[in-house]
Design a protein around this nucleic acid. Structure first.
Lengths: 196, 196
DNA sequence: CGCGACGTTGATTTGCCTCAACGATTGTGG
DNA sequence: CCACAATCGTTGAGGCAAATCAACGTCGCG
């Protein structure tokens, strides 16, 4: 199935694996299609699945004490997304994960993942690498949030994820970067007209 | 060896494992002792090992563009510590990891860990769980940093890690929480005298 | 066409930082 | 064991980056 090719490539890039095993791996995933604004994770519910984005875009966010939305993660083609804490510990989620456009996903649920991991060393290794990369990425994000100003965080994001910047709503990006959308708007203006 | 008991307990709490395998596992670790102020990780050098703290305390920090130190992680008894990005990707470190007091560690180096992982499923599983928990913890930290005020971050830390608060220098805690030590001092005062 | 969501802009406010000065504590060499 | 320096925490005055508040323009969509 052509729809699994992308995920297969994702796996092959991270572990050495036979075509046979790849088939067995992807067979555990269900293809799902969601429409813009649809939720795939909601607070209070346990996130029983994690998702690989074949095509589309998503936004994970929490709602703060005063009703403000804080974006925790974006995901576009070839990325994984979930409420990490909810999925890993099988506890109630604290996030919304919402489609920013009509999208196609591959879904695997928790028990299937555990069963895959038990079944073959190479499957466990792949998920292990996913977890390590997630941890490393999150650690870098903590560092950036602690050490950089709002303007620097915007610049860093611009240079590292230029394709995401224009694909997501401004207020979502602002809250991802830890600032208000008004302030991001001002930074953006300042950037286009750098003459003081 | 009694010195390995603590690590064995750490492993047993996370995976089901035979005493034999446990022996084989801990045999790969080297006991090292370091003195206060000694570095176990330094920027530019590749962090070839990760460390399990048997007894003592550590602080991982980066130095910002203007020379300010930002604490990324603390570790006390029964915690793991490393420059995660440096260790996982075997790239030059960006952090210092320094002993806050005379301490005892168990050290495993990267190649040994890889070899353990290949050797037995249960070893891979343990490290996988470590990575998942690290990722989940880091995700929670990102959320707190995005959604809470300095005062709230302090309160959260106080309630979750009361034993660490009194064990580490104030400036280190302040920079961990993303504020200056002056400001943390004021919050602390405000807390003792809550009468406006 | 008209409404609601989104981005922009300016005025004002504020949470937290910077700077500076001062005790308290620790450590160190004589 | 004491003097002295160095390190650390505290306190206050002043300043700035970013938030808040408010008003308006624009666009997509029912």
């Amino acid at each position: 199935m052509a729809i699994y090719d992308q995920l297969k490539a994702h796996v092959k890039k991270r572990v050495t694996i036979s075509e046979e095993d790849l088939e067995e791996f992807t067979a555990r995933f269900k293809v799902i299609k969601v429409r813009k604004r649809q939720f795939i994770v909601q607070p209070e519910f346990i996130s029983r699945s994690r998702f690989y984005v074949v095509q589309g875009s998503f936004r994970a966010y929490v709602v703060g004490d005063e009703g403000q939305e804080h974006t925790i993660q974006f995901a576009i083609d070839d990325w994984w997304i979930s409420d990490y804490n909810s999925y890993i510990f099988q506890q109630p989620a604290s996030m919304f994960v919402m489609a920013l456009e009509d999208s196609t996903l591959l879904q695997i649920n928790y028990d299937e993942e555990q069963s895959l991991k038990k079944q073959k060393h190479v499957f466990e290794k792949y998920f292990c690498i996913l977890a390590e990369h997630t941890a490393a990425y999150m650690a870098r994000r903590v560092i950036v949030n602690l050490t950089k100003t709002a303007e620097q965080r915007f610049e860093i994001f611009l240079s590292r994820y230029p394709d995401i910047v224009n694909k997501v709503p401004q207020y979502a990006l602002a809250s991802f970067l830890g600032m208000t959308s008004e302030y991001l708007s001002k930074l953006r203006k300042k950037r286009i007209l750098p003459k003081g």
